[in-house]
Amino acid sequence: MTRKIAVVAAGLSDPSSTRMLADKLVQAVFAELDARGVEREARVFELRDVAHDITNNLLTGFAPKALAEMNDYVAGADALIAVTPIFSTSYSGLFKSWLDALDREALDGTPVLLGATAGTARHSLAIDYAMRPLFTYLHAEPVSTGVFAASSDWGAEADSVAPLQKRIDRAARELADRLAGSAGAAKADPFAPESYLAGGSSFEDLLTNLPTRG
């Protein structure tokens, strides 16, 4: 079964470091899935291409064709890679506006790899205090590792302690594990009747077999 990955980049310039990071993330995820023998495909969407459509959708409640096709692909994808520039300590307004134009249930249970870019590493925590709560609110399932890239991560003086590629590879492994099924099995509901007794006994059996007091 082919795994579909939607990739959304919210960079405003062309080219942009946001798109560069998105490309590196999807390449790393592809490499991990290939190593696991999992078929995959991906589509990369740049929000700058549908910025006017997003505004029109917010104003009218109807999504123009290009935005509707993008949102349909995202809703039907097995995973999402979402990358935004950080402005004023948080995700961009365009990025948030797109999520506001997306169906509220589109990301239910979808594993998401979060990425962000900014000019300085001072914004590196934005993934955890801004992006992660947002996607959790949408009932998506962000992987543990988010990937932040500052301007210094692209140059010759890249961080020697946790270089960008190392962070990318770790996040890609986590998303690939989810897509391959090795880490994405649904957790058992502890309140389901079958969970009260080992061996899958039903709640009715539990009541029937309760010890009686003499």
Rank of each mutant, 00 (worst) to 15 (best):
N56D: 13
G214E: 15
D177P: 01
S16A: 05
S97M: 14
F191D: 07
S92W: 08
D23W: 02
S13N: 13
R40A: 15
M1Y: 13
D189Y: 09
D159M: 10
G184E: 03
A101K: 02
V38K: 00
E105Q: 10
L134K: 02
V29G: 01
D205F: 07
S182A: 15
T110L: 13
E41N: 08
D159H: 10
A126Q: 01
Y129R: 09
P211R: 07
A68L: 05
S160K: 11
N71L: 04
A22H: 08
L58I: 12
W154I: 11
P64V: 11
G214T: 14
A162T: 15
V161Y: 11
L210W: 10
D49C: 05
S124H: 07
A156M: 14
N209I: 09
S13Q: 14
A198T: 15
E46F: 00
A183D: 12
R170D: 10
K187I: 13
F87K: 12
P190W: 07
G214K: 13
T55Y: 04
S201N: 11
A185R: 14
T145S: 08
G146I: 06
G119Q: 06
G115P: 03
G200V: 07
L33Y: 02
L47M: 04
A185N: 14
S92T: 14
A171N: 01
S195T: 15
F135N: 10
D103S: 12
A158Q: 09
L114G: 01
S152Q: 13
A126P: 01
I86V: 15
I168N: 03
I5M: 06
S16V: 05
I127P: 00
D169W: 02
T60F: 13
L80E: 01
R36C: 00
A198Y: 14
S202W: 11
A68Y: 03
L102R: 01
V26Y: 00
E105N: 11
S182M: 12
I127E: 01
Y73W: 08
R132K: 13
R178D: 03
S144I: 09
A183N: 11
L59G: 10
A28F: 06
R132M: 07
A116T: 03
I168G: 01
T2Q: 12
P142W: 05
I86S: 01
A75H: 12
D189I: 06
A22Y: 03
T60C: 08
D78P: 09
H123S: 04
P85N: 05
Y73E: 12
H52R: 14
P193I: 11
R48L: 04
R173V: 12
E39F: 09
E46D: 12
I5N: 02
P142L: 05
F62Q: 15
L197C: 13
R104L: 12
E46T: 05
I127T: 03
L25H: 05
A106P: 00
A9F: 08
F95W: 14
I81P: 00
T117Y: 02
E39L: 13
F62G: 07
L125D: 03
Q27T: 15
E194H: 11
A116E: 04
